[in-house]
Nucleic acid binder design. Structure first.
Lengths: 361, 361
DNA sequence: ATGTGATGTGGGAACGGTCCCACAGAAGAA
DNA sequence: TTCTTCTGTGGGACCGTTCCCACATCACAT
């Protein structure tokens, strides 16, 4: 090696003790700050530690403590890179900061939905707990359950009442979105809906429809609505276009494919079950010269930064990513500490963020 | 605990061996897959492992191997959450995937520029190597150097020739941006420049100016240009507005503050030293009714997803985040393996991505 | 004087693996 | 037959900590 420094990479407690002229046990007491040590000895050990740039091995500590103070975070994805996803990126950011303040470090992995690889890896790493982000298949949960390791699920979907999960109140958010658009006078709605298997998308849609129905606008279940509109697009007040995934591109494609229906249907409001879908749809409208919000209002969901930057800026429903990330760590921390009575479900209220795309300036 | 499963959390090799009726050594040989073991014994051990759901402890392994197969990634920031930053998010994503394929796991931390906390933590975790992302202060590098641990720097800034770093060729990218705008006929440029201390911003700007000068448009050093334009804004072909940070908001504020100058100066092209600044500036123009690109062309840098989604979509210069992330891990892997002759500087060529904001459709 | 408690220090087992070495038995070569 | 080599197995040291326990010293009350 061409290293100019002749410093060893890592010194052990034994070497440190030797230099300070004390026993291993004594050195340990000083370094860990627990137990008796005279001022004289303490000083000698600290000086030696300074000199050797001693760093206690977390590995050895974990070995004896049977505790790593590490948390494994697995973000599941279908195909695409996921950390750069604005919402998940935010959640990861919040997890990182919350973990820091509680003394945990984060092992981060992304993995495909059905894979157990990452989970296995985390288990072998002996993480104290697991945070599973985004949706993932049931087999993953069932697998994790086999090992008595604390875990929480963030923004996923499960009917399993045993699983501790944190989600935003998507149904209520959907209702709020409907209220907002209705209150602006809109009566004919075009919905760009994300994949129905995904809890968030499905609940946002059903909340939206539920509220519309309450307000006297027929919408009903997705199936019914789609049946209606597919056959007689002009007949419904609400048109639901379903997208196979939840990307910007899908929103774009979907709107392009439905351009004729949109124009002839007299729809004045577009609701996307997330910001990306909404923005994709909005871009198509803007390119066709539709003025937003004068000719058509557009609304999304997630409150991603992107939406606020757009022109026109996008009205949306905010998801409390900060709360989600923070509480995921806090909850897991309690579970790791063996605390009983951790709530199985934590829901975050959502809030409409009104911007240019529905209200102009 | 209200755990329904009576399964122990983790079994040890000793317990496994006991169940299989062999010695610890033999069990180890089977599990690690190295060394002799008869078919009969192998089967018995594997069956026992299955039954106990045995997971070898990476902690214990790391202990004896003096090797963790973990890599520490520290992303430095000033104030804000950083993983959700589109460019750094992408880089983290790529690092994650590259690490996976080389058998490493990632410890992720974000930290303030001058702090040594995270670095210390990584050192204690005995990571095999360190990836330092974004700019950070010299003291961090000097500190890391003290410990003979392999490390690489991604997209940072340093004059230290010893440090292995991976950067995009920002100067050349700046030149390319200038070429592109010039070739479209633009002669009067308004530049929204990010913080000068940051290597990327500074090089992008100087590359841009250098090329303009070559093309016969006076631009010169930032100071000279600013001196010129501050006093007599109308005199220069190039106006450089400098921003204290590199956010969307800064771009927005800056353009608002210079609205009068922009209008009266006859500028037909805006260049932001990153996408966020460019988009912030562009949003102001759009809100004022300036047509992009007919009245003014706008160009950014980074090729963030956001830019492609905007309306009009943003012409930009792409940074090879994939290459950056992938090679950071690959290079570090070589260094960990003790391989000599690792290049000190790896530069990634940049590429102009032409979109609507400069060329219409 | 003699117990008693606080203070300070060191010895050594334990954590869960890997790996070197010793050794036993069988097969093949001399 | 005897020597060598290959195959298969177990014993035990070791990695770097923590922590329990034993022990020594000293002050102070009895």
């Amino acid at each position: 090696m061409e290293n100019r420094s002749d410093h060893k990479l890592n010194y052990s407690l034994r070497e440190l003790a030797q230099l300070a002229g004390v026993s291993k046990s004594t050195a340990s007491r000083v370094i860990s700050g627990s137990g008796y040590a005279s001022a004289d000895v303490r000083e000698r050990v600290l000086k030696a530690a300074e000199e050797l740039r001693y760093k206690p091995s977390a590995v050895a500590r974990a070995m004896v403590a049977k505790r790593t103070h590490n948390i494994g975070v697995i973000v599941f994805r279908d195909r695409l890179p996921i950390v750069s996803h604005t919402l998940y990126g935010k959640i990861v950011d919040e997890i990182l900061m919350a973990a820091e303040s509680l003394g945990y470090s984060i092992f981060l992995k992304t993995d495909r939905e059905m894979s157990l690889r990452s989970t296995d890896y985390m288990l072998e790493q002996r993480v104290d707990g697991l945070i599973l982000v985004s949706r993932f298949r049931k087999n993953v949960i069932d697998y994790v359950k086999n090992f008595n390791i604390p875990y929480v699920m963030v923004n996923g979907s499960t009917e399993d009442p045993e699983v501790v999960h944190l989600v935003s109140d998507d149904e209520r958010g959907g209702e709020r979105a409907a209220e907002h658009l209705y209150s602006l006078g809109h009566r004919r709605f075009f919905i760009v809906a994300g994949p129905g298997e995904h809890r968030s998308h499905s609940l946002r849609l059903s909340g939206f429809c539920k509220k519309l129905t309450e307000l006297g606008i027929p919408c009903g279940s997705r199936e019914a609505a789609n049946g209606l509109t597919a056959d007689t697009p002009q007949a419904g007040y609400v048109y639901i276009a379903e997208s196979p995934d939840s990307s910007f591109d899908s929103g774009l494609q979907l709107m392009r494919a439905h351009e004729e229906i949109f124009r002839s249907g007299g729809y004045t409001a577009v609701f996307g079950t997330n910001d990306m879908l909404a923005l994709g749809a909005m871009k198509v409208l803007l390119e066709r010269g539709v003025r937003v919000p004068q000719d058509a209002a557009v609304m999304g969901y997630d409150n991603t930064e992107l939406g606020g930057m757009y022109h026109p800026s996008l009205t949306t429903v905010s998801v409390d990513a900060e709360g989600l990330g923070r509480d995921a760590v806090a909850t897991l921390h309690k579970m790791i500490g063996g605390e009983a009575g951790v709530p199985r479900l934590i829901e975050y209220d959502s809030q409409v963020i009104i911007r240019q795309s529905t209200k102009g300036e």
